[in-house]
Nucleic acid binder design. Sequence first.
RNA 1: GACCUGGUAGCUCAGUUGGUAGAGCACCUCCCUUUUAAGGAGGUGGUCCUGGGUUCGAGCCCCAGCCAGGUCACCA
Length: 565
Amino acid sequence: MQLSALEIVRRESLQKLRELGINPYPAKQFKTTATIKQIKSDFKSFEGKEVVLAGRMMSRRIMGKASFAELKDATGRMQIYLNRDEISSDENATMYNTVFKKLLDIGDIIGIKGEVFKTKVGEESVHVKELTVLSKSLRPLPVVKTDADGKVHDAFSDPEQRYRQRYVDLIVNDHVKETFIKRTKITNSIREFFNSRGYLEVETPILQPIPGGAAARPFITHHNALNIPLYLRIANELYLKRLIVGGFDAVYEFSKDFRNEGMDRTHNPEFTVMELYVAYKDYHWMMSMTEELLEKVAIDSNGTTEVKIGDNNVSFKAPYPRVPILEAIKTHTGYDVAGMSEEELREVCKKVGIEVDNTMGVGKLIDELFGEKCEHHYIQPTFITDYPKEMSPLTKEHRSNPALTERFELMVNGKELANAYSELNDPIDQRERFEDQLKLSEKGDDEAMFIDQDFLRALEYGMPPTSGIGIGIDRLVMFMTNNSSIQEVLFFPQMKPEKKTIELSEDEKTVFNLLKNNTPILLNNLKSQSGLSNKKWDKTIKGLTKNKLAKVTNTEDGLFVALID
RNA sequence: GACCUGGUAGCUCAGUUGGUAGAGCACCUCCCUUUUAAGGAGGUGGUCCUGGGUUCGAGCCCCAGCCAGGUCACCA
């Protein structure tokens, strides 16, 4: 392994710690008596008292016999003050002069025991009396500094490194940690809301023999013992509905779903959807439930219903407007498309500048009109309702218009946040809708739904009228934390693998094999045996010496190349 | 998938017309007892993303590729 100079120094420090009888990775529990957040939030009662803290050393200011350092624990950062004669017992002041000043580095994890006090300039600090090494860090951490104006210098900001090495991102970028804490607050808030109503959190299969409940390309895998293909779920909808058939009144699941499609700022191959199904309800009820839920989530995560998303101020205060999709199209395009034929709709699309082709049916055309001309207008939470039937194969037909369905999508900041239906529970209608999907599939739509015969069998036993909703959790967290990229709300977003460490080139292998047969050997002999040009030879031998496989030595008899064992 | 931008020290970045690879922080040596982007003096540190090509000479120009970000397409 190729080590940088900084890494070599740290490994040497590690060795020296051991030589001093200090275990750089002690096994024993280190009992702390407080957290930094506790001290900072209640400084007066801690002042003058002894505390034991543990954390990572984030910076160091050494001034002769006194030093300041910054300690970061899971809850915050705090300055610590160290004095040579107070932390050292021997006359060489080894603990201070050697351990603290020479052998410790930024990034090391230490424990301290000391007294809480305030410095001359008013900085809340801990006066260290005892220092314990808890874990030596062998890699240099990016040093991010924040000045008195709050301006950040040398921020660790390269997105590739931040995502690939999220652990470093979390250590040096405090705001990143906040995002993920908020993510958990949001899911906890949703759970609280549902649990308090007696809804049951459940788990359903991730490995499914038929990937149903949505239209998307699945990831496929193989079960060896059964010798069958299995799919990673693209949705859990059909399983939750089976549970409603089975007699549960309300079930929900935070479902990690997987879709084998493109990746961009708002799409990751694996993502989280919260799905909820409640028996004997309809989509009107679901809208009321949703606005109540989101108002709570906003308050629980941000302390207020008013949330800044990009340049917009969005209010999650219930209630939210409910706008039928055809009305939205009328408002934003001027065309009343209600009852229009496919041909008429196609004309309207052309007039407003939407490209159309002959494969697009009524549903698709309406969807395009809304997506292109209306969607981005809905910044404040708005329920768009009553989508055309052919786009919604799992949704109950609208009670007063057979061309539409009882479906809504919740739009926030011009994007879809949730999708909900009065669920289709007529097994014969459901079978026909699936068969229509199959026809689409035969026409070449590789994302049309598969027919799940067992799901139809379940419906045939009878499912109560039910309303269901899916809320995109990643997107919800993006809104609540004002992030515009899904990668910022996933700990470990999907990335292409890093390039492997470089193997030996063909030329290097050739020379290495020559050397194995005859070592040491005169450099010029080896060079002529290799048959390489000057340029190639130079590159090859430098590659070998750099990888510590060969060594060139200068003797009275000339330059010799030898293998290194 | 297309296009745009980028990849140089541990981190953040400069790098002129193609002519000996730089700065700040970090690190090492020294000075300094309440500092705080601590300070002062000196120093170490490089696969300039990879592979070809052009050239006397490439971080820079050309070709191919890799990785990332962005925009668009796709994602009912």
